[in-house]
Design a protein around this nucleic acid. Sequence first.
RNA 1: GUGGCCAUGGUGUAAUGGCAGCACAAGGGCUUGUGGAGCCCUUUGAGGGAGUUCGAGUCUCCUUGGCCACC
Length: 385
Amino acid sequence: MIEFKILKKSKISQARLGLLKTENGIVETPCLAPVATQAVVKTLTSEEVEQTKTQILISNTFHLHLKPGEEIVKSAGGLHRFMNWPKPIMTDSGGFQVFSLGFGRDFGTGKILRKKPDFLIKKGQQPKLLKITEDGVFFTSPLNGQEIFLGPEESIKIQESLGADIIFTFDECTSPIADYEYTKKSLQRTHRWAKICLKSKKSSLAGRRGSQSLFGIVQGGKFKDLRIESAKFISSLPFDGFGIGGEFGDDKKIMVKMIDWVIKELPEEKPRHLLGIGRLEDIVKIIKAGVDTFDCIVPTRYARHGVAFTSEGKFDFAKMKLLKDKNQLDKKCSCFVCRNYRRNYIAHLFRAGEITALKFLTFHNLYFFNAEIAKIREKIKKGKF
RNA sequence: GUGGCCAUGGUGUAAUGGCAGCACAAGGGCUUGUGGAGCCCUUUGAGGGAGUUCGAGUCUCCUUGGCCACC
């Protein structure tokens, strides 16, 4: 089980400084959980991930269920041993894949829209490649087209086999183009699933010192009454912490407002994880809104697409001009990439399609994000955030 | 030296004598519970000269350059 201790609450925002104690170590919050979908932070070894000062990872139930299968991970001694990562791990439940392989894929939208939609997903509508039922979701495997069923019991069972410190309820992440009625219906289903997840979770796992912690996920889309209803309902159940999931509207200002609606309803003493949000500019806002942990693919995926985040802003290493830039990646960063390599070399490697470029950028971005968040923790400690 | 073929954005290539198109490159934008992927936008062109024609990348001639074959 986890233990969450709040060290300090900001007087000028909702931010809080905390310690999330797990059986695999302590996480200083606020904190980013880099994404290790397939039990790896792409391009890095677990030892390298540790060197980026990453405290906790998030892995994925759906993807590990498909490949290699949870039994393989379980027989390897669980995720920690399997991937040689001795620190805390979370697993996402597969609920996001209900969206990303469903309506997200169908309509090419993410969780946040850039413009107002010209049509809406209505109640009863089904995605092309999967079928959402009251009991769970029939997926079409992206690997071989095979049908795969995942419901709340299945997700929990898989997550128990994977053995992360923190697991999440199986939910449906709704689309930003879903209408009120669709979102409401989905929310009721997600709530029922949350109860089933709680019930089907074993209180302690054989052969382990204690049990995993289960976080319930708040949904409700962009609709204030649904978000509040969801936060009240989910926090009325004996979860160890809370995830805030789903879509975040079509405007960034709405996102923070939505997080505010939810957090007001959540018990103060339990940790709050914001699912899938974490651009640099967002991190500041969500921590101020009272989020303790969050996961995001931005530092790692952008790295693989050639983008470095630095104290001077973003650099796109696909661009030719960086071939002539002899500066170190980020003068103010003390990661091994910034200490040892220059922009022209990284640009050359990236443009030549060399995998080391992806490793350099992934390592740096994680180190940089973690350092930025450490600065925020320091500011909270000093009462300046 | 003779004959043949060729010459179109930065590169590689299309287009009956009728709005010069495509790919890559370059520049810009997008990417939020993973997608080493993809998408959108933009810039850039007829080796040089003369002629035929309502109209020439396209036909004729000269010229320049390249490739091939033959002496």
